[in-house]
Simulated assay, not measured.
Amino acid sequence: MELFYRELGEGQPLIILHGLFGSSDNWLSIAKLLAEDYHVYSVDQRNHGQSPHSDDFDYPTMAKDLSDFIDQHEIEDPIIIGHSMGGKVAMQYAVNNPQNWQKLIVVDIAPKSYEVHHDQILEGLNSLDLDNLKSRGDADKELSEYVPELGVRQFLLKNLNRDNSGFSWKINLPVLTKNIEIIGAGLDGRLSESKPVLFINGEKSGYIKEKDYSLIDEKFPGATVVTIKDAGHWVHAEKPEEFMETLTAFLNQ
């Protein structure tokens, strides 16, 4: 599969993987900052953004997508950043390919399994009648009955595409809906050697709890966990300065 990506900067290769319902666009501001020192590849994962759609959608498949992307672009020893779902893809790739990466940064996700908690969002997205939708404002109003948080709705509705024929989803909504339980799956395997791994945790998020630290250390021996105060799940968007300070300190070690 040929994944869509945005490429910026020069130097040591660095790959960014977005989370569920996201795309490379969500990381553009951070990618531009990193591009001052790195050769950044910000990737749209399958069934997201401008990348192809497929019925196959699980972590082994997406980790293979990343491996293929690295081979296709002849990338050597990359730094890999993954947020949420992208963090699990990055972890699975790192475990499967321990020799072909330099550093791993996992943003606000643990290697454990999670119960389904996006059902309300999916119900809201599936409720939108795209054939009769008149405007993005109408979409926001309808979605607000399921998703009360304005910021979350704005994030989700970035997936709504409009052209001369009307509205359509950039995401593969039927496949995401069908496979949502798979997105909660835990990491298969563990890293067999100690390498530089950083977990960045949003204090207000709840995705990484203190009781998860032992599992993180079991899966990634010697990994560091840093918590960013007053940040939720979208740490990089909510606290960009603190996120970049934490990231830069780790990358410069």
Rank of each mutant, 00 (worst) to 15 (best):
G206C: 02
V107P: 04
L157Y: 07
L156G: 08
I75S: 03
I200W: 00
N132L: 06
I182G: 03
I228V: 10
A31M: 01
P13Q: 06
A31F: 11
I75V: 12
N159H: 04
G49T: 06
V40I: 07
R46K: 07
A94C: 06
S54E: 05
K170D: 10
M91A: 04
L215P: 09
E218F: 11
L104H: 00
N97Q: 14
G151S: 12
N159S: 12
Q253S: 13
E218D: 13
I208R: 07
N97T: 14
F4E: 00
T224F: 00
E2T: 11
H18K: 09
E74W: 09
K103N: 03
V175C: 04
V40S: 11
M91E: 04
D44P: 07
Q99R: 10
N26M: 02
L66H: 08
I216C: 05
V95W: 05
P98S: 12
F220E: 04
V106Q: 01
A90Q: 12
K219I: 09
I105C: 08
S168T: 15
V107A: 07
D140W: 02
S29R: 12
V116R: 13
D71C: 14
G184D: 09
L122R: 08
D131Q: 14
D140A: 12
H53R: 07
N132Y: 15
D140I: 01
Y5M: 07
D56W: 06
D188F: 04
K209F: 03
S144I: 02
P111W: 03
S54N: 12
E238I: 10
H233W: 06
G232M: 02
F199S: 05
P111N: 00
S165D: 14
I208K: 10
P196F: 00
S23K: 06
D25E: 13
P60H: 13
K134T: 14
K134I: 14
E123N: 15
E203W: 06
V107C: 11
D188Y: 04
T246M: 01
D58P: 06
P148N: 12
N172W: 03
P98G: 00
A185W: 15
Y213K: 09
S51G: 11
L34K: 04
R136H: 14
S51H: 09
E241G: 11
S113M: 09
A63H: 08
H117I: 05
S42Q: 06
V197I: 01
H39T: 09
G49I: 10
E210D: 15
S51L: 10
K239Y: 03
R136K: 12
I180L: 13
M62Y: 03
D131S: 15
W234H: 08
V116C: 07
L176W: 02
H53Q: 09
D140R: 02
F250P: 00
L215H: 07
